[in-house]
Write a protein that binds this DNA or RNA. Structure first.
Length: 262
DNA sequence: TCTCGTGTTTCTTG
DNA sequence: TCAAGAAACACGAG
């Protein structure tokens, strides 16, 4: 599930552990989420360390400790939870950081998520190289137009899922953006006529998602496509026409055949 | 039993 | 060399 807003929600959950030393580290080191990590060093470094800050960018999170940084990507089914200090990990709880008053848990059944780890206090290269935030001033209409031209043959739905330019946009956000912008998801990037409207809509959906989901996992209102896109035959919340569902750009895509024309 | 999926990486093809 | 699509990863839900 985790896209921009959900990631922010999970990050805030773990923030309750900031400033509290880790007294014990529990890992399922053999699972995919630890790929590329030396488990022994990981456990040794984080044991006794103290989380001092965190940040989220797109689908990526960074938790800064006094002696290391921990990157978390939740993949499709990952989540961060806070449990009581006597917590016993289940099958999919790959990482548990026990503190005096709580246990910080990273869990991911499908193991598409990933942990990144670096010793020391400096930010790792993957964090320094992140693309501009979609709500920042660096994400401009001109940038968007240029990117669409570079990906001129790909369906705009697939383009919106490219994290190198649209960090945090996942499947439901891409559908929501295209529905609000009245743009057919199969439209080739190079044939998007009104880039300014698309640009404005991208930022609007990011803002709305962070407001509704990023703060307390509220349910988006029924006026969004979000609540109607999960099942076949749902109605378009704008015009009532039956929504279409088909794979576009490699992902299940939902759109309104009346509102969204090529 | 079978199919599908709110993601990313790697491989293949053009 | 670059872009686009497909496959693979692993598991639960319907």
């Amino acid at each position: 599930m985790p896209e921009l807003a959900e990631v922010e929600f999970f990050r805030k959950r773990w923030n309750s552990g900031l400033g509290q030393r880790v007294v014990r580290v529990g890992i399922h080191g053999q699972t995919r989420v630890f790929r590329g990590i030396n488990e022994a060093e990981f456990a040794k470094t984080l044991g006794g360390s103290c989380p001092i800050g965190s940040a989220a960018h797109g689908k990526q999170m960074i938790f800064r400790f006094d002696r290391a940084t921990l990157g978390v990507h939740l993949g499709m089914t990952g989540e961060l939870r806070v449990e009581s200090p006597d917590f016993t990990p289940g099958q999919h709880d790959h990482l548990v950081l026990w503190q005096k008053d709580a246990a910080l848990v990273f869990s991911d059944p499908r193991q598409f998520g990933r942990l990144l780890f670096q010793k020391g206090a400096s930010d790792p290269p993957w964090w320094k190289m992140r693309p501009p935030d979609l709500l920042s001033q660096e994400f401009t209409r001109e940038e968007l137009a240029a990117f669409l031209q570079r990906r001129k043959a790909a369906p705009v739905k697939a383009v919106l899922l490219m994290q190198e330019r649209f960090p945090g946009v996942g499947n439901w956000m891409a559908d929501e953006i295209l529905w609000r912008a009245r743009l057919h998801p199969a439209t080739p990037g190079g044939r998007v006529k009104d880039v300014a409207v698309l640009w404005k809509t991208i930022r609007g959906v990011c803002r709305d998602a962070l407001r509704v989901i990023g703060t307390k996992w509220g349910d988006p209102p029924d006026t969004w496509l979000f609540n109607h896109r999960w099942r076949d035959g749902g109605p378009c919340p704008r015009c009532g026409v039956e929504l279409s569902r088909k794979e576009i750009g490699g992902r299940t895509t939902c759109w309104c055949t009346r509102c969204q024309v090529d």
